[in-house]
Computed example of a mutant assay.
Amino acid sequence: MITGGATGIGKATAQLFVQNGAKVVIADVSNQAENTIKELLNIGGEAIFVKTDVSKETDIKNLIEETVDHFGKLDNMVPIAGIGHPGTLIHEVTLDHWQQMLDINLTGVFLSNKYAITQMQNQGTGGTIVNVSSIMGDVGKTNQFSYNAAKAGVANLTRSLGVTYANQGIRVNAICPGFVDTPILSIADEEKRSLLISAHPIGRLGRAEEIARTILFLASEDLSFMVEANLIVDGGYTAQ
């Protein structure tokens, strides 16, 4: 199950999971997900789309129910759905803006984890969750107060869930990407984009498929001893 699976990192993750034999559920608010589903079916995958607003508890409950009705169980949850913003001074941040950022980027992850873990417990077969935090959950960035706060929340939520449910065979980890060349960066103009590129020692932005490969790795049995990790994949950004 991949929230935010219609485009960007979510779409790349869905494609990679299908290529490795997984049956995929894409949850998104965007009808672009329907085209993504068609692409997955065209490469021989099994996939369905459930329109979902991750900030709404009823939508997440419905998402889990439809997944189990269709595929019988839930093995892996990857909550990717999120929004960004170009940056705002704290005295200009409205409560509505703050709340929207937390509702989607943090509460949406909380709800996804809550109901995925509940389903995995009911199955009794364990499972994996790979949350998507950000390097912005680990370092500060000018004028990104609400985004930074939400992503830091995802990082610590992951740590707490990881140590709480490890003994039930449910592995919860997170990936913390640097800046990745996806539609969410469309809000950045060319000057800002150049600055972002120059901030990465590797000399470029990340690619969606690179993040997808790391998510698949975290979800795989290759990392069966890893829990509550926040794995940084950032082209060297945070090492400076």
Results as ranks from 00 to 15, higher is better:
G140D: 04
M77H: 02
I187V: 15
T7P: 00
V24T: 05
I211S: 08
K114H: 15
H91T: 14
I64Q: 01
K38V: 11
N113S: 12
K51H: 11
V132L: 09
I129F: 06
V54R: 06
R159I: 09
N173W: 04
G124H: 10
E209G: 00
G21H: 12
M120N: 12
V29Y: 10
G124I: 13
V163Y: 10
C176Q: 14
H200R: 04
G153M: 06
K141H: 11
I26K: 03
V132G: 00
F145V: 13
E57N: 02
I232L: 12
E191A: 15
T164Q: 11
E190R: 04
P183Y: 11
V180F: 02
A239L: 04
A22T: 05
T7C: 01
H91G: 06
L106C: 09
E210F: 12
F49I: 01
D69L: 11
E221I: 08
L216W: 09
H85E: 06
I37W: 07
S133F: 03
K23E: 05
V50N: 05
I64P: 01
V132W: 00
E46W: 01
T142M: 08
Q15V: 02
A81E: 02
R171N: 09
I184Y: 09
K11A: 05
S186C: 03
Y115H: 14
S220P: 13
T58D: 15
G203R: 11
S55L: 11
T94M: 07
L223P: 00
G153T: 03
